[in-house]
Design a binder for these strands. Structure first.
Lengths: 268, 268
DNA sequence: CGATGGTTTGAGGTCGGTCAAGTTAGGTGG
DNA sequence: CCACCTAACTTGACCGACCTCAAACCATCG
């Protein structure tokens, strides 16, 4: 993994190293790569404070390590656990019978995976690591047992759901009414914000996913994504070189990211 | 065209009567239009059985009556309660600053409204009645208090969330990769199934929403929806006359509803 | 009656999908 | 080291599905 032969600035190996650097940024300071973590640590990961009751050590949750391209779960498997991402980047997608894949999310540190499996006993989405990643497995029975006795924890779970639903609905708006360029601009801003929140750079980062994956996420073709990127580049809003991107004009990007294909119509 | 009785009549008044008939079908037998209902009745509405503990009378929830086009909530208002639809049809949508509206769902009897408001303290969606409707207001604090003491009820809440998430993700797939005709076919089949589950006819029914609303739901223009309908009609799969529709060939419709704009690509 | 809102249909333009070619980087095996 | 292959990305040319604008129709309602 650690290859320090600095030869070319644009090599794939270089990209891999930069992704790894971001992953390192997102690691907890305390835990030096432990095999399992406490409830308190899981909550911290989710950006929640420990409940007052402070039974923060009442459970220990296994950490699962994933290699690049390794699958975490496949659609149809039994729903066992929620996963909270500790480091790395993953990709969730749902495929239909015809093999058409819709990418649903790119979970990173602090994001939950598998919430949609709760209603059913089978999970409906494929999950794959785009990079070396670590996730905390939280068996859902355990989580709901804990949250039943603790209103604070219960609230955390509900917030998780709410956040996920809001995210999906935002995505529905994007897919339902935004032009290709606006979708890509949106995507760049979203990635930028998320990296910033994790302590990385908000304006220079590296895509962990391929164009194809972005395209499936945004409901576009990969060529269209590529073209949108070069278009944004020629407008001076970003600089893109393969997997590497630098955001140059956040405001203009934000303005463009709200532009819809359609006219502004006032119904009723 | 012809209605259920074979009469030739296309008046708006007639449509209204048919909608009302469907609404009547979906009423509980027991409750003769009460002002509030018990927890057990709410659960029955959601298709869940009463928890064994059987404190089914522990709460009474207010029933809210809505006129046509009446608003139930607007984006930005404080999140107070979940609403469970008892009768009628509603429409939820989210608008951005530019007034572009994305329709998110058409809740009917047994559907929950407002789950996405739980994370935040403000609701993010507009909700409007498309028809005379009744909803049960379930204050969320009350629901979570109850569910904390009762694992069965807790599970019900989780299932609600899971169902909602799955629905949204299915919709993401539709918006992300289906052609206009496939989207409309999908929509017709979905409505058909839902009416069937509520005890109505699965193959002859009346649209409670305008073309505009369908279009915003499906990420299309209303003209495109209209054209897709006439196209499906000329294929002999359905018969459409304004708000009235009859499904003639479910299988063909189902086949068509899975067709994507894009090719079937096998990534990786 | 005219006004209004919902729906359909047509004609034309365009965004984005499709197909194809070309480039680059990486990987493998000799 | 090179030859060769593949995967990922970009770019160009073309075209078609869908959007846009406009007109006409119909039912309802004042």
């Amino acid at each position: 993994m650690y290859n320090v032969n600095g030869d070319k600035c644009t090599s794939e190996e270089d990209v891999r190293r930069e992704v790894a650097a971001v992953s390192a940024l997102t690691m907890t300071i305390s835990g030096r790569d432990p095999a399992c973590v406490s409830l308190a640590e899981v909550l911290a990961l989710l950006g929640e404070v420990l409940p007052d009751g402070a039974d923060g050590t009442s459970g220990r949750f296994a950490v699962k390590r994933l290699q690049r391209r390794q699958s975490l779960q496949r659609a149809g498997e039994r729903f066992k656990a929620l996963y909270i991402v500790q480091s790395g980047v993953l990709m969730t997608s749902s495929s239909d019978a015809h093999g058409i894949e819709q990418v649903l999310s790119f979970p990173m540190r602090g994001d939950a995976i598998g919430l949609d499996g709760i209603g059913q006993d089978k999970v409906a989405t494929d999950v794959m690591a785009l990079d070396v990643s670590r996730v905390v497995a939280v068996p859902f029975v355990q989580l709901s047992d804990l949250s039943r006795g603790n209103s604070h924890l219960q609230r955390v779970v509900h917030r998780l759901f709410g956040r996920e639903l809001s995210r999906d609905r935002e995505m529905l708006r994007v897919l339902g009414s935004f032009s290709a360029e606006a979708r890509v601009a949106n995507f760049l801003l979203d990635l930028s914000q998320r990296y910033a929140r994790l302590g990385g750079s908000s304006d220079v980062f590296v895509f962990p996913m391929r164009r194809q994956d972005m395209a499936r996420y945004l409901g576009l073709q990969l060529e269209t994504v590529s073209r949108a990127m070069t278009s944004l580049t020629s407008l001076g809003l970003v600089e893109v070189d393969g997997r590497r991107v630098a955001i140059r004009d956040v405001c203009a990007l934000r303005r463009l990211s709200q532009r819809s294909t359609r006219q502004c119509t006032r119904p009723h």
